[in-house]
Amino acid sequence: MSGYILFSSEMRAVIKAQHPDYSFGELSRLVGTEWRNLETAKKAEYEERAAKVAEQQERERA
């Protein structure tokens, strides 16, 4: 899992709640824009969280 995927899943729900009429493409475009504009430190937080999720998933598969 990547930081972007984690961010995307969280942001998509927020944007969808604010704009229920937006298409999947419109939501994706907005999520991508939000990610590109996100501060580097915040991106790093998402990357760290994603790494922890990936480690947990790997342990569960073992």
Results as ranks from 00 to 15, higher is better:
Y46Q: 00
E39A: 12
L38V: 01
F7W: 03
R61G: 13
E55M: 07
A44L: 14
A54Y: 09
Q18K: 13
Q18E: 12
R29G: 09
Y22K: 15
E34S: 11
E58P: 07
E45V: 08
W35R: 01
L6A: 03
K42A: 06
H19P: 00
A13H: 14
E26F: 02
E45H: 05
G25P: 08
R12Q: 12
N37I: 04
D21Y: 05
R36D: 15
L38R: 01
E39F: 00
T33F: 06
K16R: 14
M11I: 09
Y4Q: 04
A17L: 08
G25N: 11
V53K: 13
D21V: 04
R12A: 07
E47S: 06
E10R: 01
G25Y: 12
M11A: 05
E58N: 12
E58Q: 12
F24E: 15
S2C: 07
V31P: 01
A54V: 09
G32L: 12
F7D: 03
P20Y: 01
G3P: 03
A44S: 09
L38S: 01
G25M: 11
W35Y: 03
R59M: 05
S8L: 09
A17K: 12
L6P: 02
T40G: 13
K43V: 03
K16T: 07
Q56P: 08
E34Q: 14
V31N: 01
E47M: 07
W35N: 01
A17P: 02
A17V: 05
M1R: 04
M1F: 12
E60C: 11
A44Y: 11
S8H: 06
D21F: 03
L6S: 03
E47N: 08
N37M: 10
F24R: 13
I15Q: 03
R36N: 14
I5L: 11
E48C: 10
L30S: 13
T40R: 11
S23K: 06
H19I: 01
L30D: 04
E55L: 11
M1L: 06
A17M: 09
A44E: 10
A41G: 10
E34Y: 13
I5R: 15
A17H: 08
H19W: 03
E55K: 10
M1G: 09
Q18I: 05
W35M: 01
R29F: 05
I15D: 00
F24S: 15
G25W: 08
R49Y: 02
I15W: 08
V31R: 00
K43T: 00
L6I: 06
F24G: 15
L6Y: 03
P20L: 02
S2N: 15
L30K: 15
Y4I: 05
E60V: 10
R12E: 14
A54I: 08
T33D: 13
H19Q: 04
E34N: 05
R61C: 14
A44F: 07
R61Q: 13
L38A: 02
L6D: 03
R49M: 05
R61K: 08
F24T: 15
Q57K: 13
E55V: 11
A51C: 09
A44T: 09
I15S: 03
E58W: 06
R59I: 13
L30E: 12
V53P: 05
L6F: 03
R61D: 15
R59D: 10
R49N: 03
Q57D: 11
Y46F: 06
A54C: 08
F24C: 14
N37E: 10
R61W: 10
E48K: 08
G3V: 00
G25I: 09
A50V: 03
E34R: 13
K43Q: 09
R29N: 09
A51E: 12
A13W: 02
S2K: 10
K42Q: 07
T33S: 11
Q56F: 11
P20Q: 05
N37T: 07
A54G: 08
R49H: 01
S8I: 05
S8E: 14
R36E: 15
M1V: 09
K16V: 04
R61T: 11
G32I: 07
S28D: 13
E58G: 11
A51P: 02
F24D: 15
H19D: 03
R36C: 10
E60Q: 09
L38T: 03
D21E: 14
E39V: 04
F7K: 03
Y22S: 14
F24K: 14
T40F: 07
S9Q: 14
K43Y: 00
E47I: 05
A54E: 12
A62T: 11
V53F: 15
